[in-house]
Design a protein around this nucleic acid. Structure first.
Lengths: 209, 209
DNA sequence: AGAACTGATTTTGCATACAATATCACACCC
DNA sequence: GGGTGTGATATTGTATGCAAAATCAGTTCT
């Protein structure tokens, strides 16, 4: 995709992640084209990509439909994250650069500040930082060849992450997991990092039941 | 994608998996369009999809390039398979239907026959059956929402699987792993199935070093 | 009333035309 | 000789037109 196409894809994707469309909603090429002020061509490419990435489904001649999340889907998501992310953390312990760690620490700091001050809409702010934090670790785990594919799955799996339903206690534990994970990564200790990440995912899963 | 587009995608993908293009080769939209007797439009959609799935890379205004596999990539592939497929086998033990198991047994039988008779090109025949076998198990592990994404990664990871380099001993062991996995699945024993699959992947990795 | 057909309308799928960008060859300058 | 700039060429990116397919409304038949 070129300049316009990439823009359209990013914006559409953002809006999907932000939940601006309801599950099952039909996405018409023509109306999206109007909405973004472009022709159907870049819209089609963006939709195709979002389909492969698992955000929408496209039936031939019938259009694109926003996929929803059932309870079982959420459960699968955590099963998958519980396997993939600890593995990623293990690899990341040996591979992340010092600069990456600096960035990760800043992200964790940011989350803790939001968790302490609790300004309006702080849950979304934390969710955004949290995504960046996990993305950083996953992308530090594989090399360029598989990284994007794994990344894509993990992002899809993290789409529904919201901190609205976290209690103060759970939020605090999540923050402390981040801190401990950073310590493990800084110590370049793969098994420690893997264990912490496993706890982190299991704890997150418990919030969703 | 409609009828033509889906065809183009399938054929292109087959040819990529079959290794009909050399790594680094540029795939020009115009020549592919001629080759398949269609316009550039469905070609572009197929290329976009193959990009997301990790077969090729596309640089804006610069075209599509076939990605190759370096030694580290292969190593990553096995690391990922070593985590994902045992997990999949574990889930599959509880989820595969009896009909699925019948199919899986037939695939294993077929592989063993090829391994015993060793007709011309039997390695490719085994590879094809082996892909179906593993695909069946992975697809039986997740529900519809994440299944295709995981499937897509695992297929990409299995692209290079060739049995050319297996010794008779290694081939025999691989077949016996399949057999044991089927027993574990039939017994609906998740931990057994997971363990066998882990051995299976580790053993396969050893062939590639 | 409900099921099944038929034509109008909408929407997608593909082809084609044009615009924007990158690539390459060749001349030019230092 | 090597680097740099410039125009021609090739290739991709986007828009648009048309054909094919699905949807929907209205009608007819049972």
């Amino acid at each position: 995709m070129g300049d316009i196409g990439a823009d359209v894809y990013n914006k559409l994707r953002e809006q999907l992640v932000a939940g601006e469309f309801t599950a099952g909603q039909l996405l018409r090429e023509e109306s999206l084209a109007e909405r973004f002020g472009v022709s159907r061509t870049p819209i089609r490419e963006a939709l195709r990509r979002l389909q492969v990435e698992g955000f929408i489904e496209i039936a031939p001649h019938r259009g694109a439909r926003v996929l929803g999340w059932r309870a079982e889907d959420i459960s699968e998501v955590f099963a998958l994250r519980g396997v993939l992310e600890p593995h990623a953390a293990r690899q990341a312990a040996l591979r992340l650069s010092e600069e990456d760690l600096v960035v990760a620490r800043k992200l964790a700091d940011g989350m803790e500040r939001f968790a302490a001050d609790r300004p309006d809409g702080f849950e979304d702010q934390i969710a955004s930082l949290n995504n960046q934090f996990h993305t950083l670790i996953v992308s530090g785990s594989e090399n360029y060849r598989l990284s994007e594919q794994v990344q894509s799955i993990m992002e899809l799996a993290r789409v529904r992450a919201t901190f609205q339903r976290y209690s103060a206690h759970e939020l605090g534990r999540s923050m402390s997991h981040h801190r401990e994970l950073l310590d493990a990564l800084t110590a370049r200790d793969p098994e420690w990092a893997e264990s912490v990440m496993k706890c982190h995912i299991f704890a997150a899963r418990s919030v969703y039941r």
